[in-house]
Design a protein around this nucleic acid. Structure first.
Length: 707
DNA sequence: CGGTGAGAACTTTTT
DNA sequence: GTTCTCACCG
């Protein structure tokens, strides 16, 4: 059993007290998660807080999943009923907001890239007007600003856009938070739905735990402060690991939370030790964030004196910093290093490659695939979800489902009347040859007649449409392809997932999509990729079908739940992969937050030229337990001093002894195997064709530096 | 019309 | 840190 340190016990034993705040500052590898788990256990077993009175928040799905998983094992270890864990509320902030809003107003639509692209088509075309936007991101920003203070900057164009979004229940993630807060503040104590989720939040919870508080940003504040008021608030985090600055300032929301409860009921505790990384890695990482190790931490604040800031013994191997001119050289270095490590004591599953961008990650994945190295991408969403072609199919499904409901008068109230408009706009905007002008003319005509777009297209004869002949033809094609599905209500009768998928891809096939969607249609690799994505979507559809309750059509059920189902499915699949044969983990630094790996490669790609964010670099580095390699990290503090470069990690017997001990693995006969390892390495080298690699490695100016 | 300086975007997440 | 756009100036 893991024993806690005195400073960890201090956190755990801090008594429960309503309307108080406990803030725990916990650096990387300080046992933050373990402390949080024991805190929950303590609340339940010692403080007599009921499990259903505890609410745990984090920001990412991965963090939430890992908390639940760890809670299960810790409650099991302490011989407490595992059922208890299911009663503890554990959510991402957005997941919770989503549940509240959906409970109160049914299916909603979270707007994403293609949604914004569709809305952009509604804006006046002139380049000179202030409403012209280069990219959908600009529009997104303007709409956000408008919503923040619509009273001050009146803008009729944006106003109409926002109105359309409201009518179609289209929300940004920030809207989701605001809406959720609104429902929480509503008094529904008189409502007869006695155990609604919203009501539970208003009344039941006593303790709110926030994991990774440094990741919070201002637009989350309304919801979080509403929820935490009057409860005991326990926060864990580390400002040095704040890597979501691009979403807004963390200090802003933190000061709001600090003021939530009276000053004298706030306690700040710190966890100092680092059980994770080698002193070599910690020392370099501290240098990056400009934290002179021991001294500074002792000075600021608590009476706690750090017993040992570093718990692990030196490994004798320094983090290695390398720079390459091109991608080929970088990937050869990585593959070669991996080969060396694998031919020593490391397993594939020990290794993680972390990069800053998802696109670079994809590049690396393809390279690993080429060499036949097993890998696994750590992503919260599966790949098929961000395929635009798939998103188009989903939007077609939404159009059919919503328009059919409207046609057959199944809307619940009048505000639902034109919910289909948004999806229609989005899908029509995806058609080749339909530009801003046509969309605007059509939309205007619909508003004049006070009809939804679909209704207009089906009841107004086409000679009245304010469109050119070729455009009319295209729109007619769109309408006639969807006609049976909507007007004959086929969409809700199709009960078989495969039939439905076939039908809808048939429709998409008949529609001529613009290049953004149909990217590289002729490219065989791309269409193969699409096929794989389709299959993955089909799998989720089948799962969805199998748990569909009676009394709802399959499409509706699928559209309402596919997101959640996909996440569950995806997570289960990833878990299966980790238990199978070892795979190298690929992840962005942001997604790797909270995780640790025995061996870490950090890479920034050779092409992207803008410098590494200090905190992101710090987070990346502190993921590593024993070995750290950094490729093309462009950061000021890494360009310093000179270098012993450990030429051959394979021959470093003392390091591998250290490594195996750290991993709790028997190192029996490791030294004996050394010659054998070298032999194996040379064979693989030959197989992988590293001869070229070596020449190019020599050719590129590798710079090895040390702190 | 062409040069120049300022400022923004590039990237990371949430359903 | 690099690259692009736009307003402004001569």
């Amino acid at each position: 059993m893991d024993k806690l340190t005195p400073s960890q016990w201090k956190v755990v034993n801090k008594p429960y007290e309503p309307e108080s705040t406990l803030k725990v500052i916990a650096g990387p590898g300080s046992g933050k998660t373990l402390t949080l788990l024991y805190k929950v256990l303590h609340l339940v077993t010692v403080e007599n807080i009921k499990p259903e009175e505890i609410l745990i928040f984090s920001l990412t799905n991965k963090a939430v999943d890992s908390i639940i998983e760890n809670l299960l094992s810790i409650f099991e270890d302490s011989h407490t009923n595992k059922e208890i864990v299911r009663q503890i509320g554990c959510y991402t902030v957005h997941g919770l907001a989503n549940r509240i809003v959906v409970e109160n107003e049914g299916m909603i639509n979270i707007i994403e890239e293609i949604g914004w692209r569709g809305l952009m088509k509604l804006l006046p075309p002139s380049k000179r007007t202030p409403h012209h936007f280069r990219s959908y991101k600009e529009l997104e920003k303007v709409v956000k600003d408008y919503k923040l203070n619509s009273a001050r900057n009146k803008n009729p164009v944006i106003e109409k856009l926002v109105e359309l979004m409201d009518n179609c229940k289209v929300m940004t993630n920030d809207d989701l938070i605001i809406r959720a807060k609104k429902y929480l503040e509503l008094d529904c104590s008189h409502s007869d739905a006695s155990s609604s989720f919203t009501q539970d939040l208003q009344e039941k919870y006593k303790v709110v735990l926030i994991d990774e508080f440094q990741d919070l940003y201002p637009s989350l504040a309304p919801l979080i402060t509403t929820i935490c008021k009057g409860k005991q608030l326990i926060m864990f985090g580390d400002t040095n690991q704040s890597i979501y600055g691009f979403l807004g300032s963390n200090s802003e929301i933190m000061s709001q939370l600090d003021n939530l409860h009276p000053k004298n009921s706030t306690t700040v505790l710190k966890l100092f030790d680092n059980f994770r990384s080698t002193p070599e890695i910690i020392s370099l990482a501290s240098k990056i964030i400009n934290l002179p190790l021991a001294e500074k931490q002792v000075i600021d604040g608590t009476d706690e004196t750090p017993s040992e800031l570093v718990r692990k013994l030196p490994s004798g191997v320094l983090p290695q910093i390398v720079t390459f001119d091109d991608l080929a050289a970088e990937s050869e270095f990585i593959v070669d290093k991996i080969t060396q490590l694998i031919c020593s004591s490391a397993k594939f599953s020990d290794i993680a490659i972390l990069s800053r961008t998802n696109s670079h990650l994809t590049t690396l994945a393809n390279i690993l695939k080429k060499y036949g190295i097993p890998y696994q991408k750590l992503k919260s969403q599966p790949d098929w979800m961000d395929d635009l072609r798939i998103q188009f199919l989903l939007d077609i499904l939404k159009v059919c489902s919503l328009a059919s409901d409207e046609k057959h008068d199944r809307g619940f109230n009048t505000s639902d009347k034109w919910q289909s408009n948004f999806s229609i706009l989005v899908t029509m905007s995806a058609l080749k040859g339909i530009g801003d002008a046509s969309i605007q003319a059509l939309y205007k005509a619909c508003s004049l007649k006070n009809l939804s777009i679909w209704k207009y297209l089906t009841i107004v004869p086409n000679f009245e449409w304010p469109l050119g002949l070729s455009i009319k033809k295209k729109i007619e094609n769109y309408t006639s392809n969807l006609y049976e599905m909507i007007e004959d209500d086929q969409i809700h009768q199709l009960d078989d997932p495969m039939e439905l998928l076939e039908k809808v891809s048939g429709i998409a096939n008949n529609l001529n999509l613009n290049p953004t969607y149909s990217q590289a249609l002729g490219d065989p690799q791309s269409s193969l990729e699409f096929k794989t994505h389709l299959q993955e979507m089909a799998q989720v559809m089948k799962v969805s079908k199998s748990n569909k309750p009676p009394g709802i059509s399959f499409v509706k059920w699928f559209l309402e739940t596919y997101f959640d189902q996909t996440m569950v499915f995806h997570q289960a699949k990833q878990a299966l992969q980790t238990t199978g044969p070892g795979t190298i983990k690929l992840s962005t630094i942001h997604s790797a937050k909270g995780l640790e790996f025995p061996i870490v490669f950090l890479t920034n790609g050779t092409m992207s030229n803008f410098p590494m964010d200090t905190n992101a670099l710090y987070v990346g580095m502190t993921r590593a337990r024993n070995l750290l390699y950094m490729c093309n990290m462009k950061h000021q503090r890494l360009v310093s001093k000179s270098p012993p470069y450990s030429r051959n990690i394979m021959s470093n017997n003392s390091f591998w002894a250290y490594y195996n001990k750290d991993m709790n693995r028997s190192a029996f006969g490791a030294e004996m195997a050394h010659d054998h390892n070298i032999q194996r390495y040379n064979q693989l080298r030959k197989k992988f064709g590293f001869y070229r690699a070596y020449s190019s490695l020599k050719g590129c100016k590798s710079i090895f530096r040390r702190i």
